[in-house]
């Protein structure tokens, strides 16, 4: 599903001393089927931006187009939008509430008014997609580990089968293994379900490994956007706003400065390995 954002601005608590312009004149387009990384410093407005995309927050100014829908501050066509654009919040395990994992995952689909058989199918599929074993179904969501809770929460959104999946820092606070497992699941889901995925992240390494395109936010403004190669080309701009390019990309840039003819667009360790192997012939 295509997403277009034009001149989007958002102000928190306008007219009070706590007033805060969280987004300023944001413009971008996301094509159907893209896997986009949204990256930026803490407080740059990432969470605010993604909440606009599923209708939880209404723009102060500007227009958002999602498929056929048009959302502006005055007229917001957001009914049922949360089922089309699934949003997994930061620390989503904090929203678990049901007695069993099954019931918790079924919460979204049952709010959609689906038949019990359809709900059952979706819950099972979603659990399978995030790699939760079916034995866990009748367990309490409060009795499992943090990483598993996170999967349950993600499955809860996946079970609604959204066209667009947005994940707000899905790996925050996880160990490296849990992080890779979750991100691999997401990549698998992106391919299998043909979803448009927006991955909010702090980590350049993560987005470099999983995303095709990047959107870089700084203090509520889009500073860079485009494919990985286009964005990482501006290493200086990224460094200026406190972000960096992935370490391997930096290393490859250094090698090229030294006159070594290595391929330019290298973003992950495995790509670097194959590039170096190619050099050696």
């Amino acid at each position: 599903m295509k997403i277009t954002v034009e001149n989007l601005s958002y102000i928190y608590a306008p007219g009070t001393p706590f007033e805060k312009a969280a987004l300023r004149d944001i413009n971008f387009t996301i094509e159907s089927g893209d896997f986009v990384g949204l990256i930026g410093h803490s407080g740059s407005g990432k969470s605010t931006l993604v909440q606009h995309l599923n209708g939880l927050v209404k723009p102060t100014d500007g227009t958002i187009r999602i498929g056929e829908r048009v959302i502006t501050g005055k007229h917001a066509d957001t009914k049922g939008l949360c089922f089309t654009v699934g949003l997994v919040f930061q620390y989503p395990e904090q929203q678990l509430f049901a007695e069993t994992i099954y019931q918790d995952i079924a919460f979204g689909p049952s709010n959609m008014g689906l038949s019990p058989a359809e709900i059952d199918l979706r819950v099972r599929t979603a659990m399978d997609l995030v790699g939760l074993s079916p034995d866990l179904m009748e367990k309490s969501p409060f009795s499992i580990s943090g990483g598993q809770k996170r999967r349950v929460a993600i499955a809860g959104v996946l079970a609604m089968e959204p066209k667009v999946l947005i994940l707000d820092e899905p790996t925050a606070g996880l160990d490296p293994k849990g992080r890779d497992e979750i991100l691999n699941s997401i990549r698998k889901i992106h391919k299998q379900m043909d979803m448009t995925v927006i991955l909010v992240s702090h980590s350049m390494e993560d987005v470099a490994k999983y995303c095709d395109k990047l959107l870089v936010l700084n203090e509520g403004e889009v500073v860079l956007s485009g494919t990985l190669a286009e964005v990482f080309h501006h290493a200086d701009t990224l460094t200026d706003i406190g972000l960096s390019v992935p370490q391997v990309t930096l290393a490859v840039h250094k090698l090229r400065e030294k006159g070594i003819e290595i391929a330019e667009n290298v973003f992950t360790v495995s790509e670097a390995i194959s590039a170096i192997m190619k050099l050696r012939g």
Partner: peptide
């Protein structure tokens, strides 16, 4: 935050 998260699930 919790209200927003549950609203996101309809």
């Amino acid at each position: 935050k919790i209200m927003a998260a549950q609203k996101a699930r309809g």
